[in-house]
Design a protein around this nucleic acid. Structure first.
Ligand SMILES: [Mn+2]
Ligand SMILES: [Mn+2]
Ligand SMILES: [Zn+2]
Ligand SMILES: [Zn+2]
Lengths: 137, 137
DNA sequence: ATTGATAATGCGAATCATTTGCATTAATAA
DNA sequence: TTATTAATGCAAATGATTCGCATTATCAAT
């Protein structure tokens, strides 16, 4: 994965141990981690990393477009590596479980909305909340 | 508007000046206000209100279902009175302007997703980001 | 109208998430 | 190998939201 990242790094920015580790944690680890979870997982691997570095790295990855920030209506955010096709999320109001789903939203809705509102869409976040099967019964 | 609220109040909870004022500000005022904006508008009307009360009231209204909380990827949230039909939002990455749009998402997508993932959907938030006409040219 | 129980408020302190300043460390190009 | 300077760690700062508690005021029952 170090190799993958190398290519992704912006010119002028450096590939550090911490960045490689954080990237690995986000891509390998269970999906949709938050900064604190990434931090504690990183600590288990490398004692020498700070929460500030986690936040700084998340910002950088986000602006580089290799991760996406998710807003599930909580006071903190979650992160995931950028996927090929867009996908959206279902969040269980009871247990917090996150389920991913794809839907051909993008293509049509974007086109319609862009035309109707004269707005150039570059990103979409769709979050639905409700109750998963387990929590329902 | 005091009359409207009366009916909406939960049994046991009280209709105070502060609550009526906050409700009025959210419904009258320009859309999608955040807690701080609501607070400062409230201060102009009534010197005697605290930010804590604004937050507590927002929580209460939210759980009562008379307002909705929006998550535009910022560190704080925005609020609007609950509308009849669902509607979604376009947020300009350049000027921050919020444009509303409706789309027959709900019906079909919900049905499909509920069936395919066995998930009972009770709420949906759709936020798209991009650039408004003004900012584009 | 008066009163009593207690929900809600104001205020300041506390908490949580994220950012920032700065001295130190380390990646990388020459 | 070395010099440049991006990135890090740490602690302090900031911003958003919540909490504790004494005080106030709503509202149901006199
Ligand atoms: Mn996902
Ligand atoms: Mn709206
Ligand atoms: Zn669940
Ligand atoms: Zn704009």
């Amino acid at each position: 994965m170090k190799l993958e990242l190398t290519k992704l790094m912006d010119p002028g920015s450096r590939l550090t141990e911490q960045r490689a580790l954080i990237y690995k944690i986000i891509s390998d680890g269970g999906q949709h981690l938050d900064a604190d979870e990434i931090y504690s997982r990183a600590r288990q691997k490398s004692a020498r990393i700070s929460l500030a570095t986690v936040y700084r790295t998340l910002q950088k990855f986000k602006q580089m477009g290799i991760i996406d920030e998710l807003h599930f209506g909580q006071e903190h955010h979650h992160y995931e590596t950028r996927q090929e096709g867009e996908h959206y999320h279902l969040v269980c109001r009871s247990c917090g479980k996150v389920i991913e789903f794809t839907y051909p939203l993008s293509s049509k809705i974007k086109k319609d909305v862009m035309e109707a509102r004269d707005f150039k869409i570059v990103g979409a976040e769709v979050n639905m909340t409700g109750y998963c099967r387990r929590c329902r019964k």
